[in-house]
Amino acid sequence: MRVVIGEDEALLRQGLALVLEQGGFDVVAAVPDAVQLLEAVDRHNPDLVVTDIRMPPTLTDEGLVAALRIRSAHPDTAVVVLSQYVQRRYAVELLTDRPAKVGYLLKQRISDVDTFCADLRRVAAGGTALDPDVVGVMVKRARLADGDVARLTPRQQEVMALMAEGRSNGWIASRLVVTEKAVVQHASRIYDALGLPVDADDHRRVLAVIRYLAQ
């Protein structure tokens, strides 16, 4: 899997490249700013782009802007955006248009190498990866604003959060140490409670949850 990295901190750029190489990714380019990132993506047409949000020259959100551009110019390229801080607005911007092949994670998640590489692969395969931190904010917000979410049991809320993170039923089952069937049951109760259409497709179900939380 061919990857282009955008990260302005040299040490982190190298560390990230190393982690991805070790994880079996093929890092075709690692660049320090958004302009070079767009060029590299145009040149290499990679399967995956991993980029920091804040990059030179303005050190604001050019990584995010570049990510959105890549997503519209290269629909087949998966994009994972990393940041020191995550927030709902960026998640919504990344997911709203086309909630697939996209991820939004805290930079610190890199350190849990296995989980991180798994997240990247899932995104590259068409899934999503939302940082638990931002999902936590969204679920809490929904719980305060919305009686339906507030009525879910803590376990159901937990399952909903993990679904929003983009986890598969299997992953959730192993994480919560329950059977996959139990997870499916939780999920269907969540759909019922929130009035979401039941869908056999894993992705679309996740997206429904994310949309619900992002509104």
């Binding site: 901190e9 040490l11 982190l12 560390g15 982690v19 020191q84 930079k107 610190q108 890199i110 350190s111 849990d112 190498v113």
Partner: peptide
């Protein structure tokens, strides 16, 4: 923040 990412990465 970058250092902590790298340190955690190393530990992992």
């Amino acid at each position: 923040q970058v250092q902590l990412v790298l340190l955690a990465l190393e530990a992992q």
